[in-house]
Design a protein around this nucleic acid. Structure first.
Lengths: 232, 232
DNA sequence: TGTATTTTATTTGTCGACAAGTTTTTCTAA
DNA sequence: TTAGAAAAACTTGTCGACAAATAAAATACA
């Protein structure tokens, strides 16, 4: 549940950031369904602020591909393009590989501490069989690795892909409420050890295997799901 | 010279796009120097429109890393980080490779026509020894290849890198006014033939060689330039 | 003269208002 | 009753205004 600050209680200048964060979460959580229109006025009332900061947040979301702006008509939540998921899988696999490799090369001790901490969160979520927490902590784990790789270009693409992945996974965990294969925890541990040992090639190989496994899982979800997502 | 439409002569809804395009060009052309502050009011007067669409354009530029917003203080043109250029070179090389490879795999006849047309523009610019036109047409050539690869994630990162590259090259062509090695034209031709033949590995190899060559050229510029860019 | 402090001026972030479009509803006519 | 036209209702894009925050200038003080 999101707590809504009263009208004047927010710091000046934080309006756009605030709206951006809320909308982003609601889109990735599927609280806002793909294709759903976003009404600026209703949003302004709900968050008790004027339309200006809300529009600025929407411009930012649009430039990241999370919403689509139809000129003079409502902005809508971006659709999931099931026809071209392979482009997503391709890019995600590549980014897993290059960021993990770069992390192996450039990480500092502080990075390793942070990565291990994320992995602990992930293990806890798996232990508790909490699918939503797994999705979130898995994202943070890989985001931390990307950060340790210290390449802002790879970093921003990775974050974008991780976020879209979060939305995709959410879609299926909601319908199936499946058990996650527990080997993910072990795979993460192996990746940590490869990064820590600065073994670039092994990091690369493990990242690719990990990505392939996730892609297979999502593919499995989709195969079991025979409704017509195409027009969604 | 940019032609400025009078106040009411623009189509409603095109304001943000219009400002975004102008600012983006001026930043990449170095008309606006890295670190220069952007005054919203002056800009509003210059383009004869209110601050609202200008601010929305700035939000978009910020999310693409072309400007930096200092809260409650002026937004400034993003600096070029000479300390971490290797991250740029890394990412550019990788994107050249994956987009050229993807183009070889997925291109249509229409794509090939477009790519060859861009190459013709580039050859013309080289012929005329017009460095600025070379930079621009080289960008369009690679952007067209990326488009033919049909992966929106690779596409947007590629465009971002090509644009930053444009700014970087501009910086050095301005000081040195060098002659471009004409082998670039031949390399482009080879890439076209590999893409056309759907030879993925050869496309990949050529793209990497091409990227390496460009990286070496920029490195050469920087090596010859001994002023302290670091704090720029 | 140089430094700290108050005052002034400039610039940003947010707001409410209004006009240009778009969608929905109502009305008209076959 | 239904198709098309006209009108009403709503939504978006842009504007000018104002308050909060910062930067610059002026003043006081050692």
């Amino acid at each position: 549940m999101t707590i809504k600050p009263k009208a004047g209680e927010r710091k000046r200048g934080s309006g756009v950031q605030y709206v951006y964060g809320i909308l982003r979460d609601e889109i990735l959580d599927l609280t806002l369904a793909p294709g759903a229109p976003i009404d600026e006025i209703r949003l302004a009332e709900r968050l008790s602020m004027s339309r200006t900061p809300i529009r600025e947040a929407l411009v930012r979301l649009a430039s990241e591909g999370l919403v689509t702006t139809l000129p003079n008509r409502s902005t809508v939540v971006a659709n999931i393009d099931f026809m071209n998921l392979h482009t997503f899988f391709d890019a995600m696999t590549l980014m897993y590989r290059v960021t993990t490799r770069a992390a192996a090369q450039f990480h500092t001790p502080a990075d390793m501490t942070a990565i291990k901490s994320r992995q602990a969160d992930f293990a806890k979520a798996v232990e508790a069989q909490d699918a939503l927490a797994m999705i979130a902590s898995n994202r943070e784990f890989h985001a931390e690795i990307a950060r340790a790789g210290r390449n802002p270009y790879y970093n921003s693409l990775s974050l974008r892909l991780l976020d879209e992945g979060r939305r995709l996974l959410r879609m299926y965990y909601r319908s199936f409420d499946d058990r996650l294969p527990p080997e993910y925890v072990a795979e993460h541990e192996e990746m940590i050890s490869a990064i820590s040992a600065r073994d670039l090639d092994r990091s690369d190989r493990l990242a690719k295997a990990h990505a392939d496994q996730i892609v297979e899982q999502i593919r499995g979800f989709i195969a079991r799901d025979h409704r017509d997502h195409v027009t969604l």
